[in-house]
């Protein structure tokens, strides 16, 4: 990777219509291959397609993580995200998630963490209970 993102385009921001295709892909894999296969798809996507990102983070540490997320959300249409870089961690404050809030009009609630979680997407939900998100180990 020469910049903060592994793959670059000629346009500065992506097309929001593609969020629908991403979601349709998840639905298709779950319907055809099952829940476990969908989890495997996400794992493979992270470890293979995004392998350059892992490598970049491993060598660049905290600043590389922060730079990645700044560049990532700058290229996503309608994202409102603050990336705060500290000496030992990076904090993402996602005020508007471009994939959920704008095209889909949905909210997301997370249960679990540390590599295993349930995420529920729906139009209306009770506020996120932060106790449902496990502290990182």
């Amino acid at each position: 990777m020469t910049g903060p993102l592994p793959y670059t385009d000629t346009k500065s921001v992506g097309a929001a219509d593609f969020y629908f295709a991403i979601n349709a892909t998840f639905r298709f894999i779950r319907r055809q291959l099952g829940e476990a296969a969908l989890h495997q798809y996400w794992t493979d996507l992270g470890s293979r397609y995004f392998a350059p990102v892992s490598l970049h983070w491993k060598t660049g540490n905290i600043p590389a993580v922060a730079n990645y997320w700044r560049a990532f959300f700058a290229a996503e249409p309608g994202a409102e995200v603050t990336v705060t870089e500290a000496s030992d961690h990076v904090l993402l404050d996602v005020r508007v998630c471009p994939a959920i809030a704008q095209p889909a009009g949905l909210t997301v609630r997370v249960l679990g963490g540390n590599g295993s979680c349930h995420q529920t997407f729906a139009a209306t939900q009770a506020p996120q209970d932060l106790a449902d998100i496990r502290e990182a180990i």
Partner: peptide, 22 residues
């Protein structure tokens, strides 16, 4: 998060992943 900026990249990668599954 999986973004739309590099959508064509992970979209194309997904074709081969599906092929490998079946």
């Amino acid at each position: 998060m999986i973004g739309c900026y590099d959508f064509c990249g992970h979209y194309e990668w997904t074709f081969q992943w599906l092929h490998d599954q079946r």
